[in-house]
Design a protein around this nucleic acid. Sequence first.
DNA 1: GTCTATAAACAGATAGAC
DNA 2: GTCTATCTGTTTATAGAC
Lengths: 218, 218
Amino acid sequence: MKTPEQTDPDAPRSTRTALLAAGIHLFGKKGYIGTSTREIAHRANTNIGSIAYHFGSKEGLHQACGAEISRRIREGIGTPEASAPSSPEAARTRLETTIRAFVMFLNGSRHADDVVSFMVQELGTKGPAFEIIYETLIEPKHREICQLWSTASGQPADSESVKLAVFAFLGQSLYFRIGREAVNRRMGWDGSTPENAAMIANILITNLRKILNEEPNE
Amino acid sequence: MKTPEQTDPDAPRSTRTALLAAGIHLFGKKGYIGTSTREIAHRANTNIGSIAYHFGSKEGLHQACGAEISRRIREGIGTPEASAPSSPEAARTRLETTIRAFVMFLNGSRHADDVVSFMVQELGTKGPAFEIIYETLIEPKHREICQLWSTASGQPADSESVKLAVFAFLGQSLYFRIGREAVNRRMGWDGSTPENAAMIANILITNLRKILNEEPNE
DNA sequence: GTCTATAAACAGATAGAC
DNA sequence: GTCTATCTGTTTATAGAC
């Protein structure tokens, strides 16, 4: 017997994708335990039974949501360029492009709101979809940026200081998303707009330049 | 009729404080919805009814936990010094002391683990205790550090760029706590130790010096 | 103050009609 | 494939014994 969860093409489309969209939205907003299957089914304009049919169980749906948001985030922040940068300056430029894309994606697009919330939930609680997000998104992206940082700074890409510096670098961007309620309130901002995101990106890029400029002198 | 929640001194002590400790631990670990009152009562070696007696309801207990962790965190990261720093160099030194205390508190002490987890849960989900944490902890601490940053860099303390830079600065520390599962895994670290926390603090302080050193040249 | 028993609502999973 | 009805277990809150 062939169940839909085993078939690779997205054959039925309608109900299945509606469940994924509703799952991503609600899991991201209220967490895994905080979201009921009834709520998901209602938002997807279908019934509870269809979750078991398409994904086996609530946890199966959650896993599928995790794989889906990992894919969308990779799309959203862009794929790494094929060729390695030829000079430290070129590497620094690529770092700046990367951080701007990352910040704008995290904070500036209302379209990506659901997927980002989902990822943050998983990161913080180490939920059941943490594995797939780490393996397919965080690890490769961190490794890629360590390479750029290495070229830009002259330090070895697998050194502890480079790996930590890259986490600090990416962590700043992520923090502005995670703590945005506090940030918006303190800044007097009315919600997260692309303009606000651009201001954040500018500060981070300014800091990045200062950090990298003095790096070789150490 | 006088209920215990209205009396200010911690008169009964035993059961009430046991419930607070259990609540902070479990709410921090599994979130508000993910924690059942039965679980809390069991961990506090008491019964479900006592939660209603001492705190009115599950949400009442959660609020009380929020106030308690805010108090403990303020204790843990130290109170601001009474006198303003006399020179930019003195301000920079205080910033370095502050960030090291913050990082060590967040990442290095197993004792503070419960309260930090609780705060992170509230920050991310904007839970019912967010208000009290923001008002009593985040706002005053951010304001205090903006003052130091202003003295160290020469920029006005209420400028957008200073406020954002301070958030970026604090956000890095917090990120290493929130994303520690990912960080530990990528670094090959076996859990969060004071030694690892010290490495993180060193990187952040190095970055801080670079950022502040070039500040006046802009 | 402490504890037990119970009520009323809700959860996820599933069998089976269509 | 879709949907309903139902089973089983768990949730918080509460009434009342001690």
